[in-house]
Amino acid sequence: MKGTVLAPFLFTLYTADFSYNTPSCHLQKFSDDSAVVGLITDGDDREYRGLIQDFADWCLWNNLQINAGKTKELVVDFRRRSHSPPAPVSIQGTYIETVKSYKYLGGHLNDSLVWTHNTDTLIKKGNSRLFLLRRLRSFGVQGPLLRTFYDSVVASAIFYMG
């Protein structure tokens, strides 16, 4: 499926029969990406690790490949005292890298859920596009055309998370 226009559609179609949703864990699928979200309470991560293993096994049985080398784990820990990091997750014998920040669906997430990096990225992207708008105005482009450029190029970049 990799590299085709149909890949996101086919991934959604092929994985439609695998779903998981409980109060503490769920599998989020979007286009051709998947994310496992798990709430680990009192150090009990069995359901989280079980869901990862079940999904990896299901993919194997259904001839879908998980690129474990590109897979990342982001751990958000709200405990007041620092604890040792959780044991690394393994998918098909490959240990998954734990990262401090990750870009997912256009948004920049980090392990403390601070939006500074995401906001800085949006500001940078917005400023570069506003520069283009100012250049158009300096060339004598007027009203409705500037508004159309703003709506399609500047606003779309600022109001979309990525």
Results as ranks from 00 to 15, higher is better:
residue 79 R to I: 10
residue 150 Y to E: 11
residue 156 S to D: 04
residue 44 D to M: 06
residue 132 L to P: 00
residue 77 D to E: 01
residue 48 Y to N: 05
residue 108 H to K: 00
residue 150 Y to Q: 08
residue 120 D to F: 01
residue 47 E to A: 06
residue 56 A to W: 04
residue 103 K to T: 14
residue 128 S to N: 12
residue 129 R to A: 09
residue 77 D to V: 04
residue 132 L to Q: 13
residue 22 T to Y: 01
residue 86 P to W: 03
residue 140 G to P: 11
residue 81 R to H: 06
residue 55 F to K: 07
residue 23 P to E: 02
residue 129 R to D: 04
residue 135 R to L: 12
residue 109 L to M: 14
residue 61 W to D: 12
residue 98 T to Y: 05
residue 146 L to F: 06
residue 88 P to L: 08
residue 32 D to Y: 05
residue 127 N to L: 14
residue 90 S to H: 04
residue 132 L to D: 05
residue 86 P to L: 07
residue 21 N to A: 05
residue 129 R to C: 02
residue 150 Y to D: 10
residue 124 K to D: 15
residue 59 C to Y: 06
residue 53 Q to V: 02
residue 56 A to F: 07
residue 159 F to L: 15
residue 148 T to G: 07
residue 107 G to Q: 01
residue 108 H to M: 08
residue 31 S to T: 15
residue 65 Q to W: 01
residue 34 S to N: 02
residue 102 Y to V: 12
residue 127 N to D: 11
residue 32 D to P: 14
residue 74 L to N: 01
residue 120 D to H: 03
residue 152 S to D: 09
residue 125 K to H: 07
residue 118 N to P: 08
residue 13 L to N: 03
residue 82 S to K: 02
residue 109 L to K: 10
residue 76 V to G: 00
residue 46 R to Y: 01
residue 158 I to L: 15
residue 4 T to R: 00
residue 28 Q to M: 08
residue 71 T to M: 08
residue 52 I to F: 08
residue 64 L to Q: 12
residue 49 R to W: 03
residue 113 L to N: 05
residue 99 V to P: 14
residue 23 P to R: 09
residue 50 G to R: 12
residue 12 T to N: 12
residue 152 S to K: 07
residue 90 S to K: 15
residue 83 H to R: 15
residue 56 A to G: 10
residue 128 S to P: 00
residue 82 S to F: 01
residue 114 V to A: 07
residue 76 V to I: 12
residue 71 T to A: 10
residue 105 L to G: 07
residue 61 W to F: 02
residue 36 V to Y: 02
residue 145 L to K: 13
residue 61 W to A: 14
residue 86 P to F: 05
residue 66 I to V: 11
residue 106 G to F: 00
residue 99 V to N: 13
residue 145 L to R: 14
residue 87 A to H: 06
residue 150 Y to T: 10
residue 17 D to P: 10
residue 97 E to A: 09
residue 69 G to H: 06
residue 133 L to Y: 09
residue 132 L to E: 05
residue 156 S to R: 00
residue 135 R to H: 07
residue 74 L to V: 08
residue 133 L to A: 09
residue 3 G to C: 06
residue 160 Y to C: 15
residue 68 A to G: 04
residue 27 L to E: 00
residue 139 F to M: 12
residue 26 H to P: 13
residue 120 D to Y: 00
residue 119 T to V: 15
residue 67 N to W: 03
residue 139 F to G: 03
residue 99 V to H: 11
residue 69 G to N: 14
residue 123 I to F: 06
residue 75 V to C: 01
residue 157 A to S: 14
residue 152 S to N: 09
residue 71 T to C: 14
residue 95 Y to G: 11
residue 11 F to H: 13
residue 35 A to V: 15
residue 77 D to P: 07
residue 22 T to Q: 02
residue 106 G to K: 08
residue 52 I to R: 00
residue 81 R to S: 11
residue 99 V to L: 08
residue 102 Y to K: 08
residue 7 A to F: 04
residue 71 T to P: 11
residue 72 K to I: 02
residue 47 E to H: 06
residue 153 V to A: 13
residue 113 L to V: 01
residue 89 V to N: 09
residue 153 V to G: 06
residue 144 P to Y: 03
residue 96 I to C: 10
residue 94 T to A: 15
residue 119 T to K: 07
residue 152 S to T: 09
residue 46 R to C: 09
residue 1 M to Q: 08
residue 88 P to R: 13
residue 88 P to N: 05
